[in-house]
Design a protein around this nucleic acid. Structure first.
Length: 273
DNA sequence: ACTCGCCTGTCG
DNA sequence: CGACAGGCGAGT
């Protein structure tokens, strides 16, 4: 569910925890994308202070001095701030107990998420972070697309979704950026001209920045919420995603929906060439 | 470069 | 009840 903007919104919603000290970590061992053992987190983090909440692509980084908690929300993950006595959602796998009584809960029904506790000095070498490409919000998006797309044998849509190229773009924003740039998702990446790549890079940055401003995309199912359980408002600005059959906002043509690698792709057959 | 599988919840 | 969902890595 959460792509870069949603993770960034969560990151910002946790700002009030920064500087706080842990009183403990709890939960039951469970298999997420990797096994999670809350007891070992509790031992290693002891009474650590939360120094910073960072983000790389779709990964959240909670820096506790000697260790960094690396969290990925997968499709259904949430990080929720709770007050003492606040009822706890189902599928709460991990709780950070702060010494002011507040709790940060990692909730993930579908268990596609992940939590890893990494020694700070190993963070840069940690494989899943190390393989990430340019951050799609803050990095050199144009440079990354210029380097990779002309040599890619895949579609431009796949290229945007490839986290080794750009870190943070998921299916919603890939579709939206391609519409804004007037590019058909399933075109060969190497056939995209340099000016079109520049437009695409600008569109990626613009759509992500706008989505962050709007608090992220919360679709009708209410999936995404920030740390305070607030949804975002970008869904009303979506131009193609989940809009198959409805008129294009720019030209009135019906939005096409098709399926690629089992995932939905949306585009306007008139505006996007 | 593509397919599959990991899970639960929700919707038609 | 089946189809489908925002992701991603392993295996082919």
């Amino acid at each position: 569910m959460p792509e870069l903007p949603e993770v960034e919104v969560v990151r910002r919603s946790l700002a009030s925890l920064v500087g706080g000290r842990l009183a403990g970590v709890s939960g039951h061992p469970i298999r997420l994308r990797r096994p999670l053992d809350p007891d070992s987190w509790c031992e290693q983090l002891a009474e650590a202070r939360l120094e910073e909440v960072g983000r790389r692509g779709k990964y959240l980084l909670l820096s506790f001095g000697a260790h960094t908690a690396v969290l990925h929300l997968g499709m259904s993950g949430r990080l929720l701030l709770g007050a003492p006595g606040f009822p706890e959602p189902a599928h709460t796998h991990l709780r950070f107990h702060f010494d002011d009584g507040r709790e940060l809960r990692f909730v993930d029904p579908r268990r596609f998420g992940m939590g890893e506790l990494v020694p700070a000095e190993e963070l840069g070498r940690w494989p899943w972070l190390a393989s990430l490409g340019e951050d799609a919000l803050q990095g050199d998006v144009r440079g990354a697309l210029d380097r990779v797309l002309p040599r890619s044998r895949s579609t431009v849509w796949s290229g945007l979704l490839n986290q080794k190229v750009l870190a943070g773009v998921g299916n919603i924003y890939a579709n939206e950026a391609l519409h804004r740039a007037g590019i058909r998702p399933l075109r060969n990446a190497r056939g995209i001209s340099r000016p079109a790549r520049t437009q695409l890079a600008d569109a990626v940055k613009a759509v992500l920045a706008e989505a962050v401003e709007q608090g992220g995309t919360t679709l009708a199912d209410g999936g995404f919420v920030d740390g305070s359980s607030q949804g975002g408002y970008f869904a009303v600005r979506l131009r193609v995603y989940a809009k198959g059959g409805t008129p294009c906002i720019q030209c009135g043509e019906k939005i096409t929906r098709l399926q690629k690698h089992g995932r939905p792709v949306f585009f306007c057959p008139r505006c996007q060439r």
